[in-house]
């Protein structure tokens, strides 16, 4: 037990938790915006798989992480257009459409992977701050700061982007006309429509932002792991959707949920690797992240009910 509480192990655990949380955070923030506009997207996992494969394959072929990230976002954007068209303009049932997107993403990413790659080949890992080409030198001394240096500065750029996205999404939702429109169409689309706010346009854009972030989340996952594999996400996208619910549709609670999930997962793995959790309890330990995160958010996050028009297609009568 004492071994776990050495500073270096604690910090390494925290750093792992943050790294682990990033794909969840990106996907869940995107889904938050979509759900605030009244659209549930259960296809997040499928979009992540496609975005993740696109990013992985691009890096494999071009060696450019930037290109990979761009492709991941673009794939997400494209899937978003499909999903938005089906749900916003064709008024399709959101739950089923989302499952369709998921299954398509799951199958098609695997097909592309089998056809184009086959055996998983590692790609070069995402550089952490200090290894960034050109500017890395600036950050090197920061990492040497005792105790917090590694925790704060030994991450890749996407990690910082995801964390900065939290206040940005809050600002976007609460302080901009677009965000106000998003909240309005998610709550009472008739009212927004009566004041000339285009429900379709607002939801369309919200879905595109959400699915682009899902694509980015997938790219982050595959680039962080530097590999792709059949069903790489392993249901991560669904957990992200759950985090939105349990995070009460608020970016800060979604962040808390993602970090907590990451922390419990990282801690569980650490404890098992240090034999603090006995081998016999490994099945129970595997469930711990989900259970603890849900319990914590249920208890802590203010129990705001969700957007009233969530999953309800809008059309003028």
């Amino acid at each position: 037990m004492s071994q776990f509480f050495t500073v270096s192990v604690l910090l390494a655990t925290l750093a792992t938790a943050i790294r682990f949380a990033v794909p969840y955070l990106l996907a869940a923030l995107g889904e938050t915006i979509g759900q605030r506009s009244g659209v549930l997207n259960l296809g997040v996992d499928g979009i992540m798989l496609l975005g993740g494969f696109g990013a992985y394959y691009t890096v494999l072929e071009t060696q450019s992480h930037l290109a990979g990230i761009g492709v991941g976002i673009a794939v997400g954007l494209f899937m978003g257009i499909v999903y938005a068209y089906v749900t916003v303009f064709l008024h399709a049932e959101q739950g089923i459409s989302g499952i369709g997107i998921f299954l398509f993403g799951l199958g098609f990413s695997d097909l592309l992977f089998q056809e184009l790659v086959g055996t998983p080949k590692p790609i070069k890992p995402l550089p952490t701050l200090d290894k960034l080409p050109g500017v890395g030198g600036i950050f090197e001394p920061l990492i040497d700061i005792p105790v917090v240096g590694e925790l704060l500065f030994d991450h890749n750029l996407l990690t910082y982007f995801a964390l900065l996205l939290v206040p940005f999404v809050t600002w976007l939702l609460m302080k901009t006309t677009f965000g106000m429109n998003v909240r309005a169409v998610g709550e009472n689309p008739q009212a927004a429509d009566s004041l000339g706010v285009s429900v379709a346009k607002t939801r369309f854009i919200a879905i595109l932002i959400g699915s682009s972030l899902a694509g980015l989340a997938g790219a982050t996952l595959s680039l962080q792991l530097a590999i792709f594999q059949h069903n790489l996400t392993n249901g991560l996208g669904f957990i992200a959707v759950a985090l939105v619910y349990f995070g009460a549709w608020q970016p800060r609670w979604v962040l808390a949920g993602a970090l907590l999930y990451g922390l419990v997962t990282a801690t569980r793995i650490r404890w098992q690797s240090l034999d603090i959790i006995p081998q016999s309890a490994s099945d129970i330990a595997a469930m711990a992240p989900a259970i603890i995160t849900i319990l914590a958010l249920v208890l802590l996050a203010s129990r705001v009910r969700g957007p009233a028009a969530l999953t309800k297609p809008f059309s003028r009568h």
Partner: peptide
């Protein structure tokens, strides 16, 4: 030290 991740397919957990 052996850790079972609980999944045959979860690459992220195996990595962690």
């Amino acid at each position: 030290s052996a850790v079972y991740t609980g999944s045959f397919s979860d690459v992220a957990l195996a990595t962690t």
